[in-house]
Computed example of a mutant assay.
Amino acid sequence: MKILLTGAAGFIGAHVARLLLERGDTVVGLDNLNPYYDPRLKKDRLATLAGHAGFRFEQMDVADRARMPALFARERFDQVVHLAAQAGVRHSLVDPHAYVDSNLVGFMNVLEGCRHHGVGHLVYASSSSVYGGNTEMPFSEHQGVDHPVSLYAATKKANELMAHTYSHLFSLPTTGLRFFTVYGPWGRPDMALFLFTRAILAGEPIQVFNHGRMVRDFTYIDDIAQGVVKTLDRPPAADPAYDRAQADPASSHAPYRVFNIGNHRPVPLMDFIAAIERHTGRTAFKQLRDIQPGDVPATYADVSELEAWTGFAPHTSIDDGIGRFVAWYRGYYGV
């Protein structure tokens, strides 16, 4: 397959690219290398892919309305994995326009490219954030997700709606993947594991929000990458059992699906911190803070739909995953 992978220099994108290349696919990786966090980390991720003959990198912004159509017309991709986005719940309170440009305009450019150039399957990144104000656990794709609590979450919900429209109107097979708190080597510096590990090793205090009363379905990066690839290999078709009179958000009359990818093992934040302490051999100095705007106190994924669809479910334990991250962090930063 010839695959367009947007966000190729990103945390998830670089891992997905590696899996695709190792199995023999041709990957055109696209990224704008923006400075939301240190671009050096992004370039170093790309360097790990440079040795693969099937990989080619294009520095481009998905919001570019001139270059994106030209790319699709020139390359004639078989499939698209769209992971490029302006990430971060908290940053969406600071720079909301960046989320409109990347997550809405950019996604529209991807949909149009897929529509006009015969792409066989579009897999795109959604987020557990779409569950917003929901409190019924575990979160299921069969639940409504109509109460986002951040602009970031709203853009991801909008992506699902936009994808469904194109699946309905143009029979474009689309699959949205709701990622649950991804962590692991080469992770994002604005995420908790990265921030906590850096501070603990430097002997600095860590900020613990909601006074530590947070629970997250932390999901290891290798599990996420495998889930993306296995989902890519099974394009959705219209659900013949779909009942328009009792609409189920998890299925459709169109070739459209959404799936959770989570570890299905929610971990209290204080246990997460304790695991970092074990693997660093240091004690964290904790500063307890109120919950931040846009945050939710708990996430917990029901992954039964993903497992039934692909035969795969994430399995890496939090202790193993944090151990691998700390080892990578020490090696990468020499600490």
Rank of each mutant, 00 (worst) to 15 (best):
M1P: 12
L4E: 03
T6N: 03
T6R: 02
A9P: 04
G10K: 07
F11Y: 11
F11L: 01
A17Y: 00
R18Q: 15
L20Y: 05
L20D: 01
L21D: 02
G24E: 07
D25E: 13
L30K: 00
D31W: 01
N32P: 01
Y36K: 08
Y36N: 09
Y37E: 03
D38P: 03
L41H: 08
L41T: 09
K42F: 10
K42M: 06
K43D: 10
L46S: 05
E58N: 02
V62D: 00
D64H: 09
R65W: 02
A66Q: 10
R67K: 14
L71T: 01
G88M: 09
V89N: 09
R90Q: 14
L93T: 12
L93A: 15
V100Y: 13
V100W: 09
N103L: 05
G106H: 03
M108L: 13
L111A: 09
L111V: 10
C114R: 03
H116I: 02
H121K: 08
S126G: 12
V130M: 04
G133K: 08
N134C: 13
T135K: 12
T135M: 10
M137R: 14
H142N: 14
H142Q: 15
H147V: 04
V149R: 10
L151W: 08
A154N: 06
N159R: 05
L161N: 11
M162H: 10
M162I: 11
A163S: 05
A163C: 02
H164T: 06
L172F: 02
P185V: 06
R188C: 11
P189R: 02
A192I: 07
T197E: 05
A199N: 15
L201I: 12
G203E: 08
E204F: 06
V215C: 01
D222I: 10
A225D: 06
G227N: 05
K230E: 14
T231D: 09
L232W: 04
A237H: 11
D243Q: 06
A245S: 15
P249A: 06
A254W: 00
V258D: 00
H264G: 04
R265F: 07
R265M: 12
L269W: 12
F272E: 08
R278M: 12
R278N: 14
H279P: 10
A284T: 12
L288T: 12
R289A: 14
Q292A: 15
Q292M: 13
G294E: 03
Y300K: 00
V303L: 04
S304V: 07
W309H: 13
G311V: 05
G311Q: 11
F312Y: 15
A313H: 11
H315M: 07
T316W: 05
I318D: 03
I318H: 07
I318S: 05
G323Y: 06
F325W: 04
V326D: 02
V326T: 10
V326G: 01
A327I: 13
R330S: 13
V335G: 14
